[in-house]
């Protein structure tokens, strides 16, 4: 068998696709199925352990057995496409949102998004301060094209559920008193303080303002929003807005 065929068949077996193992001409101390299981188990265990590390609140909410089922389905349906697994978890929340097994936990994908956002935000080492001096040097023409920036690792969520309360409740191992019917706007962003990330609820107006910033509305467009100056000052002060572009770069 050519090496490319052998590796393709080996890979198919790891991903639980049907393979004629006898064609691989494998020998060893145990039956070929058991030998191949060692590799398959190692593959799933290593990626599942990685996912458990990235999604501790999801794990705490659903328990080990269900988490491992979810992880296995994710690994099979969304195989790793990069040698470096650092960003593999990015697809876990959308996957949870897409599968039938989690219908009874409609907030689970949101909890996963917060786990992932927290993981990514913590990884940010340096957060740029807002460049006030550069802002003062802009011409009128440049100011008209000005767009504010927020760190790429910032997470903005509008949820039908009290996501932040659930997530914090899971982390504190106390979900009592959470009104599961209340909708919530929230933000999670990198911070030099505390755990490396800050997370808090937003008002609807604050959420809409940040949504406009993140989609790249210009300064002129943002100025139409109620309490524009107050919101801008607040989010620059909180290092949520920490840069700008004029399109000249």
């Amino acid at each position: 068998m050519k090496l490319a065929d052998l590796q393709a068949q080996f890979s198919r077996h790891l991903l639980h696709q049907p393979v004629d193992l006898s064609a691989l001409n494998i020998t060893g101390p145990l039956p070929v199925e058991q030998l191949m299981s060692l590799y398959r188990n190692n593959f799933y265990v290593s990626l599942t352990d990685y996912l458990k590390g990235c999604f501790p609140s999801v794990f705490a909410l659903v328990g080990e057995e269900f988490f491992e089922q979810l992880a296995k389905a994710f690994i099979i349906q969304r195989p790793l496409v990069n040698a470096n697994i650092e960003l593999y978890g990015a697809g876990f929340s959308p996957f949870i949102d897409s599968v039938e097994q989690t219908r009874e936990l409609p907030y689970l994908a949101g909890v996963a998004a917060l786990d992932w956002g927290f993981d990514r935000a913590k990884a940010v080492v340096e957060i740029a301060s807002f460049p006030f001096a550069e802002l003062g040097l802009l011409s009128e023409q440049q100011q008209s094209k000005l767009r504010f920036q927020i760190p790429a690792e910032t997470l903005l969520i509008a949820s039908d559920y009290p996501l932040l309360s659930i997530w914090q409740g899971v982390r504190k191992q106390c979900l009592e008193g959470v009104d599961m019917q209340s909708a919530e706007y929230l933000i999670l962003h990198p911070s030099q303080q505390d755990e490396g990330a800050l997370y808090y609820s937003l008002s609807a107006a604050q959420y809409e303002f940040l949504l406009a910033v993140s989609r790249g509305d210009t300064l002129d467009q943002l100025a139409e929003i109620a309490d524009f100056q107050q919101q801008l000052n607040y989010f620059i002060g909180n290092t949520v807005i920490n840069g700008f572009t004029t399109g000249d770069e």
């Binding site: 393709a8 080996f10 890979s11 991903l15 190692n42 290593s46 195989p79 790793l80 496409v81 697994i85």
Partner: peptide, 13 residues
């Protein structure tokens, strides 16, 4: 090896 047809396996095969 750890990849085949652009799928990666996070293991030393």
């Amino acid at each position: 090896w750890s990849s085949s047809n652009s799928r990666y396996f996070n293991d030393l095969l």
